[in-house]
Write a protein that binds this DNA or RNA. Structure first.
Lengths: 339, 339
DNA sequence: TTGAAAGCGCTAACAC
DNA sequence: GTGTTAGCGCTTTCAA
């Protein structure tokens, strides 16, 4: 391994000077600089991030906590898109991404904070974290710059980003209402999550605004999985008391609903309208295409990265709760109600 | 920040002893060990990975190079499943995952090797890397333990894993042949990739084995994207010379083919049979369900992790080229040929 | 504009 | 069983 000592010796300067050149400081004579740079290239020198990090206390890396399969056993439907936006943006500023995977630590070391400090990451991105994770509270209060997705948490150094769950739900409802629907059932996500509660609120708000009574029997609780959507629709079917439209808190649940409805002999998009939430890839591939509320996934990653960078690079920055707007995507599952 | 010096002072022992306890060495008296451990917990001490790495030359992290959007602008259809298997397995051995994202390095430092050494990763996982990447050749010959997916490359410290592309293609063809099809077109992936070439070979092999002449006009080159499958099918349709079945080198292309065929008024699964490759999630959600050759994705991640661990932990280990077997998944797009 | 030297937190000879 | 000490490769005062 080539170190700055090798460079220094070869160039006939001190390691300090080499370090200065490497870090682009101004107080080096042009000729020295050139000489050092030349040797750096010649020897194929690469700085050692650990050694640098030891002294500077920065690692130029950000940690990522991502709990997949929390309840579902499924992969997250749009992980890659968000993470790609995040990666591009943060990578352009010189950071690499550290995904925590190590599972051999003893209990004390398993907290978010401990693991982040262990790796000296400069910041943290958290996603799909259960709200009741025992070590989350400590992290919220910590001094580690972090951005958490889909959870309404802020702290001295923690900001959060969600899509406009409430607004998106209203958007979905408005589309249904504009199409003449007034009997609208709702399939909610796991109500222990912030997003699910917000979407439910949006549903209720839209109802209220239009003077439509809220019918608890039309509020079916699911858990964001296809299976739970399927089960919800089965319950609905069995009740015999059908709405003209169903608003699902996620596309995966909407797909489950579609399946159950079709099994029950109903033509989705004809006899019954359906709208989802998320706009996962599948929404445009199934038949009929699922009308839904799009989350801007790539953009969410970008915004998350920018917000985190600000928190890292400017400690005066007050963390915010950011909201991404949503978009209505019209496909085939909503039809105007024939009067 | 609490260091082993703090622990040592408080416990009235030397830092060496603390280090010994921390690393679980045997030559420490039980009472000393207990005392140190107690203080470690009490003070909430967390080891500093960078400092440790500096001396040990190991980082307990493995680097991941993943080129998304290589040509397609699309997210990889089964990234998460593979990476989850990998992450679980490697995490259980104490490693974290470093995703290279930093894009600010100058050219000299942009090679795989340079970036890996910069971060002192103990091993490397590479995926979706263009075969002609200019810095790949150097990595192959390097002494960094690495596993590369879907590329037929081995080196002194590099092993690779692919699914059985050839065998899977034969499997697909056999199913078609068993169902009476003899006029079978093939939509290939990007022929600059190893997997696409192998699958083509499998197609040709099966043809030959059954004494069916290879018809170049029925070998349509695509690039793994839906769009290219769509275009291929359009060409086929226009030629007027239709096969009874089409074997697609990927599910995404098969989906494109389906779309084009349906636009052309053909009933896929009735008038024309179709089989894909990969078994992406979408394959089971579209209508009709796509018959395909499944790649065992999670398992692939697990195997990759195990292979990499072996390479890291045992430098005598000779890297191998591993092949994962595939599975036929029967859904609705293949029908026996009426005679 | 340059260099000497200390120190970041940890491990590992080596000695006792 | 335990401690002393010398690094690991780098940055950063402080002096010159």
């Amino acid at each position: 391994m080539i170190t700055i000592y090798d460079i220094a010796k070869r160039a006939g300067v001190s390691v300090t000077t080499v370090s200065r050149v490497l870090n682009g400081y101004a107080d080096v004579s042009p000729s020295t600089r050139r000489k050092v740079q030349h040797i750096v290239h010649e020897l194929g020198y690469r700085p050692n991030a650990m050694a640098r990090g030891l002294t500077t206390k920065r690692s130029m890396s950000v940690g990522v906590f991502f709990h997949d399969n929390v309840n579902t056993g499924l992969s997250h439907p749009f992980f890659l898109e968000v993470i790609n936006g995040f990666k591009e943006t943060i990578g352009a500023e010189g950071y690499d991404l550290l995904f925590f995977a190590n599972d051999t630590l003893d209990n004390e070391l398993k907290t978010f904070e401990a693991r982040a400090k262990h790796r000296n990451v400069d910041g943290l991105l958290l996603w799909a974290i259960p709200e009741d994770d025992p070590s989350l509270a400590a992290l919220v209060m910590s001094s580690i710059p972090s951005i958490i997705l889909d959870l309404d948490l802020t702290g001295p150094c923690m900001g959060n980003i969600s899509c406009d769950n409430f607004g998106g739900a209203v958007q979905a409802m408005n589309f249904l209402l504009e199409n003449g629907h007034r009997n609208i059932a709702f399939v909610s996500g796991l109500l222990s999550t912030h997003s699910a509660r917000e979407r439910l609120l949006g549903y209720q708000h839209a109802l209220q605004l239009h003077g439509i009574p809220y019918r608890p029997e039309w509020m079916l609780e699911g858990d964001y999985t296809e299976k739970s959507g399927y089960a919800a629709a089965k319950r609905l079917l069995k009740s015999g008391d059908l709405p003209t439209a169903v608003f699902c808190s996620s596309d995966m649940m909407a797909i489950g609903v579609m399946k159950a409805l079709e099994e029950g002999g109903m033509l989705v998009g004809e006899e019954l309208s359906l709208i989802g939430f998320d706009d996962i890839m599948m929404a445009s591939y199934i038949t009929p295409g699922l009308t839904t509320i799009r989350q801007k996934k790539h953009e969410m990653g970008v915004i998350a990265a920018r917000a985190l960078l600000e928190l890292i690079e400017n400690s005066d920055k007050v963390p915010e709760a950011l909201t991404m707007d949503t978009e209505l995507v019209v496909r085939g599952t909503v039809r105007p109600l024939a009067l």
